[in-house]
Design a protein around this nucleic acid. Structure first.
Length: 995
DNA sequence: ATCCTCCCCTAC
DNA sequence: TAAGGTAGGGGAGGAT
């Protein structure tokens, strides 16, 4: 309030609604009712300030329910402040430009903040009502929004129409709106896990770091064809030749983009931040150069920034706009160069060696002006012979400049350069060097390679040694495959009890599962990372921050790759328990998946002849793609192509098209480089069933050839469908409607299951299980049914005993879980399913001699229901362990999951070492149950192996011994079972084992 | 020697 | 109040 008054220079300070209302009525209203009260601490403060953007609330609240229009509205809203400026400057408004500027400068920050909420609240709507809620989908939703909005954005007329619409439709009702709003959406004010049940979901929508961190994925999908083409070339590339590398970087990207259409702000200090509270700890994300002159830097708290520059203008993030400008940016770069390596949304390397026809500096100049022309944002560039020097040159060039460093000048340039300026050298390494009195590259050159190796290790030592000499052999543009996918939150995380933690973990698992599916990958290693308050650390300075924390992590590697939410959740819980934390001290949680495999491969990898041969049918590849397409067609019912685009696994470069063409289509239609299958691979039956608008969309993609083909075939009907109907059949039964990915995190696996008809017979059959739990995705199913393909929904077996276990155990465990819950385990007398129902977790009965293996089932009284199967035979005990309430049993089960039946117990037990903390406590109920379960398992294992594989038993007991030293529980287990082992050994060999 | 887990560091 | 993420690289240290 002080600032406002100071800057009003005697003019009355009014609420922005005065301006808007005056505009709406086209006359100057009495400002008295709009005057801001002196008492700023009143609880009504927010209401008054937010009235500035009330026309947005008005619009979006009313239209928010109408899902389709929502995005447009959002866009209109976000351009409202630009619009109103244009209007006041350009139209015959009675408000002078000066006054508006004044308002903008001095008043708007809080309102802008409000505006950020409003826009995002709209976003919430879209997400809640939309069909996707995964992060990737969210990110893509942004992209889609942008695509959708492009038409508007590119048409100034339309834009000003929007602005006009916005302001004229706001008719004086703002005063009550903020209250309404807060009543309608109280969660928008929730900043912690304690107050917002949807915290995880909401968090990522507003996180700048999340935006930065996930941008590359979005870019990868969008430009995948160019990237692939390029990577082939770059592999062929060899060194030796002198290269020309350009490094190009937009200037203060986040802020420039937001104010790119507000020329009045160019010379004023502006920064991007979530909040304008001058006492707040919101972080400045990006500050323009006028602001930097006040010493304002990214990462600073807004209160410190305001302290340095009280009239600093704060503008909110505009993530959609960042995508849009980044697209324009990369469009231009790809036009000039085939070797582009994206570092981030605003920064890239170009290897111009092969595509250079002119003077590099001129080309650079041209690229920069094109960028400015297209985006109204400036970029700086560095030119050099390698990536390191080009990057350093850019630093010298900023802002809005370019710099060429010839190699002969590199030494001079570097010798006075701070070590910290080298890429890859952060504060830790530079501090370490500084402690040795080394601050500049020149000084670093005096250190021998060996010394650097000793202090920093081989790799970093080499890097330091090379970089301080300007040496860099890295190559532009190698696209590497994703190695891990994860999600983490270290802000707003507060738990009161285990339930809070579990809820949060669950949502995080959902998030990760959806991201995995979005990337089309599955993983085997799950890593949970938890930040806890460091001993003695107080409440963080930063509001809702994590403060000074300790980080701990636990990982578990399972046998079969998964992207299933259910699996993730179960394992995450185990990992969390294994960390043995006080949940009240938790300040941040992250979950990541690594050891990734392509989802397609992961599903097919298991052997199983039948499955494989079936999958390898000629139509199979096409089928797979078509699946995605079919499944997705109906999710939205709007555009098959949009959905096709969402599925990362099928984006392969459309190499036949020129790059420019692709870029164009990217921007205008949002088709993201999905490879078109050859015309001959298209399934006519399916095509014929497509809704006309999709048909026409596809026809366009095939440049009209599709319609021609259809016509030909229609005139040709009597001849039968040849290979095409074959592929349709395959397509049909492999296709499970992808349906609502949001609810059904594990849709991918419900494809097809092999089941053994009967134990006695060797003939196996295909059966198909269609997860028909989603009525909304009927269209693909309709297609399936219409085609009346041979294998349909029957042949579901009566019980699991009919299943071929070699196949069953290779299934993703969520499918298995479904089967187990859907089917009785066994028919009477079936030896392979002799334990009780999986849902009961009682300890097994003590039995006699165990099955030797599943193949000699008849030999050892297979009808004996008391037999506890060993790992070598049926996998029932695994299921039992999995559903057990004993954590350590869960862990053991996890290790066995999806593994082949030949995996020895020792290898299953081995990783348990990391989870000994999960062992039951002495005297607990769990203790006895777990003990009896494990001893039984071991007993049977001993019986099974003592004759054939004494070494394996030895291994197991070595492990037990190891565990026993760290766990009371295993000590007792070992002590109780060791005599049995030695007895058995002595019976067979006349001696005992020595450990 | 090689792999794995649990970190830390770095960049955007 | 405010949204401190994401992913790769690498080192230490232990197991095999």
């Amino acid at each position: 309030m002080k600032n406002l008054r100071a800057f009003s220079k005697g003019l009355p300070v009014v609420k922005p609604a005065w301006v808007v209302d005056s505009l709406a009525e086209n006359r100057l209203l009495n400002c008295a009712p709009y005057q801001i009260s002196q008492n700023s601490s009143s609880s009504r403060k927010q209401m008054k300030l937010s009235a500035f953007f009330s026309e947005k609330q008005n619009e979006s609240r009313h239209l928010g329910e109408q899902n389709n229009q929502n995005k447009d509205i959002e866009f209109q809203s976000s351009s409202a402040q630009e619009g109103s400026q244009y209007q006041s400057g350009g139209c015959e408004s009675e408000v002078s430009l000066n006054n508006v500027e004044l308002l903008n400068d001095s008043l708007s920050s809080d309102e802008l903040k409000e505006s950020a909420f409003e826009e995002r609240d709209n976003g919430d709507f879209a997400v809640e009502e939309g069909e996707y809620d995964c992060e990737t989908a969210c990110s893509e939703r942004r992209v889609n929004d942008m695509d959708d909005n492009c038409g508007v954005a590119q048409s100034p007329d339309a834009k000003s129409r929007c602005s006009n619409l916005c302001s004229t439709s706001s008719t004086g009702s703002h005063m009550s709106l903020p209250l309404e709003k807060s009543a309608a959406k109280p969660s928008s004010r929730s900043h912690s896990t304690l107050t917002d049940p949807n915290f995880v979901e909401n968090y990522f929508k507003y996180s700048r770091l999340h935006f930065i961190g996930t941008w590359r994925n979005r870019y990868r999908k969008r430009f995948s064809n160019l990237l692939e083409a390029k990577s082939i070339k770059s592999n062929a590339d060899h060194s030796g030749k002198k290269k020309t590398i350009i490094h190009i970087d937009m200037d203060c990207f986040f802020v420039s983009v937001v104010i790119r259409n507000m020329p009045d702000l160019l010379d004023k200090p502006v920064a991007v931040c979530h909040s304008d509270n001058p006492k707040g700890t919101a972080e400045i994300s990006s500050a323009n150069y006028p602001a930097r002159n006040y010493g304002i830097k990214a990462g600073m708290f807004v209160r410190d920034a305001k302290a340095r520059c009280p009239h600093l203008m704060i503008v909110p993030y505009k993530f959609d706009a960042y995508e849009e400008v980044a697209d324009q940016f990369y469009g231009i770069l790809h036009k000039h160069c085939s070797k582009v390596q994206a570092l981030s949304c605003d920064e890239a390397f170009l290897d111009m060696t092969d595509c250079l026809h002119d003077d590099p500096e001129e080309v650079t100049q041209r690229i920069r002006s094109e960028i400015f022309y297209a985006t109204k944002c400036t970029a700086s560039a560095g030119i050099a012979e390698n990536m390191l020097l080009a990057r350093l040159a850019t630093r010298s060039a900023k802002p809005n400049g370019q710099c060429f460093i010839p190699s002969e000048k590199a030494d001079d340039y570097l010798s006075s350069l701070s070590i910290k300026a080298l890429p890859g050298i952060g504060h830790t390494v530079s501090a370490k060097l500084k402690s040795k009195e080394i601050e500049y590259c020149g000084q670093l050159r005096n250190i021998s390679k060996d010394a650097l190796h000793k202090d920093f290790g081989k790799k970093i030592g080499d890097l330091l040694w090379n970089y301080c000499r300007g040496i860099d052999h890295s190559v532009v543009g190698s696209v590497q495959e994703t190695k891990s996918v994860g999600a983490e939150i270290n802000w707003g995380v507060r738990f009161n009890d285990n339930k809070d933690a579990e809820h949060f973990l669950t949502n995080l698992c959902k998030e990760v599962s959806l991201r995995l599916q979005g990337c089309g990958v599955q993983g085997r290693t799950i890593t949970l990372k938890v930040k806890t308050r460091r001993e003695g650390a107080g409440e963080p300075i930063k509001y809702m921050g994590c403060g000074d924390c300790e980080t701990t992590s636990r990982s578990m590697t399972i046998a079969g790759a998964t992207d299933s939410f259910v699996t993730l959740q179960r394992i995450a819980k185990q990992l969390f328990s294994a960390l043995r934390l006080d949940v009240k001290e938790v300040r941040g949680v992250g979950l990541a998946m690594s050891k990734l495999e392509h989802a397609d491969l992961a599903r097919r990898a298991p052997q199983g002849n039948m499955l494989e041969s079936w999958l390898a049918s000629p139509a199979e590849k096409l089928t797979k793609r078509r699946d995605e397409m079919l499944g997705n067609v109906d999710v939205t019912g709007t555009s098959a192509l949009q959905d096709l685009r969402r599925s990362g696994s099928i984006s392969i470069g459309a190499t036949s098209h020129s790059s420019e063409r692709n870029l164009k289509s990217d921007r205008s239609t949002g088709v993201h480089n999905v490879e078109l299958p050859p015309l001959s691979h298209l399934d006519l039956e399916v095509l014929k069933n497509l809704p006309p608008e999709i048909m026409s969309e596809m026809n366009d993609m095939y440049k009209g050839e599709l319609q021609g083909l259809l016509n030909t075939v229609n005139s040709d009907k009597g001849k039968g469908s040849s290979s095409k109907s074959l592929s349709l059949t395959a397509a049909a039964h492999n296709s499970v409607p992808a349906s609502d990915a949001k609810l059904q995190g594990y849709r991918d696996h419900k494809d097809c299951i092999h089941l053994e008809e009967d134990k006695g017979k060797s003939d196996k059959r295909l059966s198909e299980v269609i997860a028909d739990n989603d009525a909304s995705c009927s269209r693909a199913r309709e297609l399936v049914e219409k085609t009346k393909c041979v294998t349909q929904l029957d042949w579901m077996p009566d019980s699991l005993s009919q299943a071929d276990f070699t196949v069953l155990q290779e299934l993703p465990e969520d499918v298995k879980a479904d089967l187990f819950s859907a089917l009785p385990l066994h028919r009477s007398g079936d030896p392979t399913c002799s334990t009780s129902n999986v849902s009961e977790s009682k300890p097994p009965n003590v039995g006699g001699a165990g099955n030797r293996s599943r193949h000699d089932g008849g030999a050892d009284d297979p009808k004996d229901p008391r037999i506890f199967p060993t790992p070598g035979s049926s996998q029932k005990w695994i299921e039992q362990f999995r559903v057990s309430s004993c954590l350590i049993l869960n862990v053991i089960a996890e290790q066995h999951t999806d593994s082949s039946c030949t995996r020895p117990l020792s290898s299953i037990l081995e990783p348990v070492a990391s989870f000994l903390s999960l062992c039951p406590k002495s005297g607990s109920e769990e203790w006895n149950e777990t003990l009896s379960c494990l001893s039984e398992l071991l007993r049977h294992y001993i019986q099974l192996k003592v004759e054939t594989d004494i070494e394996e038993l030895y291994k197991c007991f070595c492990l037990l011994k190891r565990f026993a030293s760290a766990s009371e529980f295993f000590l007792e287990l070992r002590d109780s079972i060791l005599p049995f082992l030695q007895d058995s050994v002595s019976q067979h060999y006349g001696g005992t084992l020595h450990f």
